[in-house]
């Protein structure tokens, strides 16, 4: 029987700073057999350990279409994530996974896609965005709407520029607090509704960000005519095991780590109100 709780060593091959507290880590399993068997889908997460410190669930931000490595974008917010930030290229992390369900992919083919993210929420979406970009002709028009607190809090700024250059793809940025020379919008991400047309026709909205942002964006999308089934989002809960055993992420009879983290608005509406999922 496989011991699902055992993590495997992976070497950090590259570290890219994203913001003052967030970095992207490109890692590779030491054991090629483990690397080959780590078959993940867009939107899944992994449990990352620093031995002696602990474990944290982190979304896999790389796209399954780009093989040979894994990428994680990690914000330093506590014990484990602070410790990860102290590591250097060549150091080792311990990883197990992949866990959770995934963003739809085949079901999105032939549709207009709206990717809407806040802050570090762009990390899990990036996995799907790059998978879509690697199969660009299968999809219609794409809009990426991204908001952050300040321009310095934006992740993947270079990649946002590259996505912009792809045919039939728009990137709209907004910040709560601008700095000198900021050329894009100001305000929360729903402010972008004033700047660009958001059409429900043959479209799906895919959201990731803090609960408050998801809540308001879902409301805006509904107002714009999106059906609950065409609004897809990821939920976050405190997690320990990642495999439906420790109980921490339970909501109703579901476990966010196994039944999620990706849900449609229709599913989210069925969660008991008192669970405050959003």
């Amino acid at each position: 029987m496989k011991n699902e709780y055992l993590p495997y060593p992976a070497t950090i091959e590259e570290i890219r700073p994203e913001t003052f507290d967030t970095k992207t880590y490109k890692v590779k399993f030491k054991d090629q057999k483990i690397a080959d068997s780590f078959d993940y889908k867009q939107g899944q997460f992994a449990e990352i350990s620093v031995l002696g410190v602990g474990e944290a669930p982190i979304s896999i931000t790389s796209s399954p279409s780009r093989k040979g490595f894994l990428e994680f974008t990690i914000r330093a917010t506590g014990k484990v994530t602070d410790e990860i930030h102290k590591l250097k290229v060549g150091d080792v992390l311990h990883i197990r996974g992949p866990y959770g369900n995934a963003f739809p992919f085949d079901a999105l083919k032939g549709k207009n896609l709206y990717f809407i993210a806040g802050g570090i929420g762009l990390a899990p979406l990036r996995s799907l965005i790059n998978l879509v970009m690697d199969n660009r002709s299968d999809f219609k028009h794409i809009k990426i709407l991204y908001g952050a607190k300040t321009p310095e809090d934006m992740c993947f700024t270079q990649e946002l520029e590259e996505w912009k250059k792809i045919d039939d793809t728009e990137v709209w940025l907004t910040v709560d607090k601008p700095c000198d020379g900021w050329g894009c919008s100001v305000g929360v991400v729903t402010e972008l509704w004033k700047e660009t047309n958001i059409h429900p026709d043959n479209a799906v909205g895919i959201l990731c960000g803090p609960p408050i942002m998801i809540k308001f964006v879902t409301m805006e999308l509904s107002k714009s005519g999106f059906k609950d089934n065409d609004i897809v989002m990821t939920l976050e809960r405190y997690m320990k095991c990642g495999i439906g055993k420790c109980g921490h992420c339970n909501v109703g009879e579901k476990f966010i780590c196994v039944d999620g983290p990706v849900f449609t608005s229709e599913q989210v509406k069925k969660f008991p109100e008192k669970e405050h999922v959003l």
Binding site: Y5, S49, L51, G52, V53, G54, E55, K240, C241, K245, C246, G247, H248
Partner: peptide
Amino acid sequence: CTCFNVFDNATDGKGERVRNWD
């Protein structure tokens, strides 16, 4: 009741990962 917490009990990179009732 089967809920548990997971944590590392270690000094200087030597130790154990533990689960206990929660």
